Amino acid sequence: MTDPKPLPFHFQFLAGAIAGVSEILCMYPLDVVKTRQQLSLGKNTAGVIGTLGQIIKSEGAPALYRGIIPPIMVEAPKRAIKFAANEQYTILYKNLFGIDKMTQSLSILTGVSAGVTEALVIVPFELVKIRLQDKANKAIYSGTWDALTKIVKQEGIFALYNGVESTIWRHALWNGGYFGVIFSVKSALPKAETKQGQLLINFISGAIGGTVGTIINTPVDVVKTRVQGYKGIGPRKYNWALPSLVTIAREEGMGALYKGFLPKVLRLGPGGGILLVVFEQVSSLIRKHILVEQKQPM
C-alpha cells in the first residue's frame, strides 16, 4: 500500500502555517523561561513555575510574551517549511531511491533535510527573539523593530546570522527525531477506527516525537542561545557548536548542556502533538472540501 498523495505545496504551506501559529500561541511563555535558563551561567534553582512567577512579579504578565512578534512573523513560514519541505523531500527521495512507501530511515532523512531548510530561513528572527527575551536587554531594546535596527546599526547586517551553524544543528536534530519517531509510533499503534482515535494517535505520536527531538537537540539549543545572546561587546566566548559544547561542559558541568530542558520539553512535547494534530486536521479539511470541489466538473 502506497502512502497518501501529498498536498500541493501551497496547501502544505497553509496547513503548516496554521499549525505553527496555533502551537506558539499556546506554548510561548515556556519558551521565554527556557531562554532565561539557558542564558543563566549559574545553577537554575527556581524551576519552571518559580521562573514564571518571578517574571510576572518583577516584570508583569506581558513579559511572558516579550519577543513574540519575531516568532509570530516567522512561525507561519517556519512551520510551513517544516511540513511542506518534509513532504517535498519525501517526494524527492522516493523518486531518487525508487520506493513508494515510507520507512523510518526515510522519515529521518526527510526530517533532517527539512530541518536544515527551515533553519536557514529563521536565524534572524530567532536572534531578535533571544535578544528580547533576555532580561538584561529590557532597557536596551524597546521592541522588535528597535532591536532589529540597533543590531544592524551596532553590529552589522551579518550579525543577524550569528548562530546559523548551531541553528542548523538544532533543527536538523529535532526534525530528524520528530519525524522519525512519529513514523515509528504510528506504525506501532493499532490503526484508528474513528476520527477521534486518529486525533489521539496523531497527538501521542507528535508529543513523543517532540519529546525525543528535544532530548536530542537541547545541548546545541543551549549553544545557539548563548551565541545569539552575544551583543558584540568584549571577546566572543561561544561561536561554533562543537567547541562551545566542550566549553560549557568543562566550565559548568555536563548538566549545563540541558539547561532549559524542562520548559523546552513541556513546550515541544505537547507542542509537537498540537503541531501534528492541527496540520493533519487542516490537511484533511483541504483534501475533503477544497481539492474535491476543484476536481468536480463545472
Rank of each mutant, 00 (worst) to 15 (best):
L160C: 03
N162Y: 14
N162Q: 13
G163K: 12
V164K: 06
E165I: 12
E165G: 10
S166N: 13
S166P: 09
S166H: 12
T167R: 15
T167S: 14
R170Y: 13
R170I: 09
A172Q: 06
A172P: 07
L173I: 15
L173W: 08
W174C: 09
W174A: 08
W174M: 13
N175S: 15
G176T: 04
Y178D: 01
V185K: 11
V185S: 12
K186W: 03
A188P: 05
A188C: 02
L189K: 08
L189R: 07
P190M: 05
P190A: 08
A192G: 04
A192Y: 02
T194Q: 10
K195N: 10
K195A: 04
K195G: 04
Q196T: 09
G197I: 05
Q198H: 09
L199C: 12
L199S: 04
L199F: 14
F203T: 03
I204W: 12
I204R: 09
S205K: 07
I208Y: 06
G210H: 07
V212G: 04
T214E: 03
T214R: 02
T214H: 00
T214Y: 02
I215D: 01
I215F: 10
N217T: 10
V220G: 06
D221V: 11
V223Q: 07
V223W: 05
T225S: 11
Q228T: 04
Y230V: 00
Y230L: 02
G232C: 05
G232V: 03
I233S: 00
P235V: 15
P235C: 01
P235I: 14
R236K: 15
Y238L: 07
N239K: 11
A241Q: 02
L242Y: 11
L242W: 09
P243G: 08
S244A: 14
S244N: 08
V246L: 11
T247F: 08
T247L: 09
I248V: 09
A249H: 11
R250F: 04
E251T: 06
